[in-house]
Design a protein around this nucleic acid. Sequence first.
DNA 1: ATAATTTAAGATAAGAAAGTCTGATTATGA
DNA 2: TCATAATCAGACTTTCTTATCTTAAATTAT
Lengths: 142, 142
Amino acid sequence: MSIIFSRQCEYALQAVTYLALKTNGEMTSIKELAKKLGIPYHFLGKILQDLTYKGLLVSQKGPSGGFRLAMPAKDITLFHVVEAIDGVGFTKNCVLGFPDCSGQNPCAVHEKWAGLRDGIYSMLVNKNIAQIAKETRKPEYV
Amino acid sequence: MSIIFSRQCEYALQAVTYLALKTNGEMTSIKELAKKLGIPYHFLGKILQDLTYKGLLVSQKGPSGGFRLAMPAKDITLFHVVEAIDGVGFTKNCVLGFPDCSGQNPCAVHEKWAGLRDGIYSMLVNKNIAQIAKETRKPEYV
DNA sequence: ATAATTTAAGATAAGAAAGTCTGATTATGA
DNA sequence: TCATAATCAGACTTTCTTATCTTAAATTAT
């Protein structure tokens, strides 16, 4: 199975997008996120914990606690989230897996892939979560 | 970890490329492939078996047996190999994992990703194994 | 025929990713 | 203060991928 981002990463993107739809400093619980997004509760908890550790979210314990974005949604790009969860390996390795593919010794699609890779990179960097939230508003989210 | 193709798929691409460097109908053993390419012997065996089942390779048992391409290298594209091993899920699913992302209800990068996805697709379709073998000839292969 | 060599096939193990469960910790509000 | 509600933390289970091992089947060459 070919994949681009791990499932954790997809969940993270969905959760961060959901949080961006919440105005002011309102906290959102794992329970609400898990329910509305259809993501396993405890698994999501781990991911949010991770995003908090990485500085993208802020958490608060206790009643009426939960998570919120650590900064304005427009300052968080897709790339920030992907980088936090999956890392940036896709920008480095040969897409065909040839072990000694490099600039000196390029595989047959080296240049072609470099262009596509840069396209993916700029897609991630140039799209912030505020845009994602605005343009991806889904019925269940309201 | 973000990845594009599975390790099996990468191994398959490397093996098929190696086989394309063999002229005429010569058979190549798993042993040689595994050794030259640095791929675990038995694991590679399974993959070659799979590629044979899918019709990309032909196998022969017994002494001086092994595998060879089932057709001219120029008739096998990267896409054929990827399709055989990993399937073509990457052409269908939302790159951000939004469950109900579609043409009617697109996510914020839906169009952007469609372009990049098509770029990856045409990269795979427009590059055949003969080209890969020619342009990716590596020292150890000779 | 027989021994040697090779793929075929299935069981099993090791590792990573995904998902679950339980209890501890922290904060709120009655 | 105290019950409650929430995250935090760790162990555990399950599932998938990767890798290994062993035996069977087929083919070749002697």
